[in-house]
Each structure stands twice: as structure tokens, then as C-alpha cells.
């Protein structure tokens, strides 16, 4: 997210005048724990990708392999870690 604006720089009533700017809103900063994948254990079953409620598991579609996480949007819910049959995902506390 770009630098937060002061109150004098805002539109009247907080109206949003640009289309599609929700893309700029990084919601991943709510996270208290971040998922970390151990690719040596990962079997690329893509269970994490299927279960992630926030589409934050990054997959290389051509190769069919799990690549990592989109930390800008991952909320750290841990569903990926709990569904991983290979126990390849650890939840690391955010500082």
C-alpha cells in the first residue's frame, strides 16, 4: 500500500474515484502466523491450493507444482498446514 494520505487529501465523503483499486489493498497484514513450505517434503498434491480460502497458494499451472504463498493476501489461517498430508507446511509466528 502506498503512503497513507492525510485528511486534507481525501475525496469528499471518502468516495473512491478510481476503478479496481481494491487490488492495491494488501490484506495480508492481519496475519499473526505465516505458512512456510518445505519443498523437500512437499508432494505437490495441491491440497493446500484447493483448501486455501483466500487463493493465496501460488501454483505453477504448467508444471502442476506448488510454488509458495502470496503473503500480500494470506491471512495465516493455517488451513493449508492442517490439510497437508505430507506435513510439509509449518506455521511460523510473525514478529
Amino acid at each position: 500500500m502506498s503512503k497513507l494520505k492525510g485528511w486534507k487529501e481525501l475525496t469528499p465523503g471518502g468516495i473512491i474515484t478510481e476503478a479496481g483499486n481494491a487490488r492495491e489493498y494488501k490484506t495480508g497484514d492481519w496475519r499473526t502466523e505465516r505458512p512456510q513450505v518445505n519443498k523437500e517434503k512437499c508432494i505437490n498434491c495441491l491440497f493446500c491450493w484447493a483448501y486455501c480460502p483466500d487463493a493465496s497458494v501460488i501454483v505453477d499451472a504448467d508444471k502442476g507444482v506448488m510454488v509458495g504463498f502470496d503473503y500480500d493476501h494470506c491471512k495465516g489461517c493455517g488451513i493449508c498446514a492442517s490439510t497437508c498430508p505430507a506435513k510439509a507446511i509449518d506455521m511460523i509466528p510473525e514478529r
Partner: peptide
């Protein structure tokens, strides 16, 4: 031709600034 959004979610990062501008108004 100039699409806008009214009343979006406004949390701890901007709600206060919006109220301040309303006080000024």
C-alpha cells in the same frame, strides 16, 4: 464514464481522517 464507489469499507487506517474532513466540512 466516471465510475465511483460510495460508502466503501473504512477501517482504522482511514475512518478517522474521513471524520476529520467531515468536521471541517
Amino acid at each position: 464514464t466516471h465510475p465511483v464507489t460510495y460508502g466503501p469499507l473504512d477501517l482504522f487506517d482511514y475512518y478517522f481522517e474521513h471524520k476529520r474532513s467531515q468536521i471541517e466540512a
